[in-house]
């Protein structure tokens, strides 16, 4: 299991233990983290699972693909250099304790 720490816009921290191989978006949707909507189910057609990955955790993730980059342009909350689509973050052992900051709005 990989611990994922979601930080809500109000500063609350919600920690969830998730199986390896799941995406951060799946973990959020299945656990009722309502700041992540995940409309398109992870097929890179929307930007409603936009998150800000803590800079301490982002190194392992590498850069966003062109398709992800294009979708992020359509995100409802401001895009920063920490912006990622959480459907593209597949949890591995190295992500233990990853900190995910949630944007105020997704649509």
């Amino acid at each position: 299991m990989v611990q994922v720490n979601f930080h809500t816009p109000d500063g609350e921290k919600i920690s969830i233990d998730a199986p390896e191989g799941e995406s951060v978006m799946q973990v959020a949707v299945q656990n009722g983290i309502r700041w992540i909507v995940g409309e398109c189910g992870g097929s890179l057609m929307c930007a409603t699972c936009h998150v800000y990955v803590d800079p301490d955790n982002s190194q392992r993730l590498g850069v966003a693909s062109d398709d992800e980059d294009e979708m992020l342009e359509a995100a409802a909350s401001p895009r920063t250099e920490c912006s990622r689509l959480s459907c593209q973050i597949r949890l591995g052992e190295a992500d233990q304790g990853i900190n995910i900051h949630l944007p105020p709005t997704q649509r």
Binding site: V29, R34, G38, E39, C40, G41, S43
Partner: peptide
């Protein structure tokens, strides 16, 4: 309710390609 995550548009690589325009 949080309703996303349902399978009405399918799931995986073949999930509905028109789902965003349908929404």
């Amino acid at each position: 309710r949080v309703a996303t995550g349902h399978l009405a548009f399918g799931a995986g690589v073949h999930n509905c390609v028109g789902q965003m325009i349908a929404r």
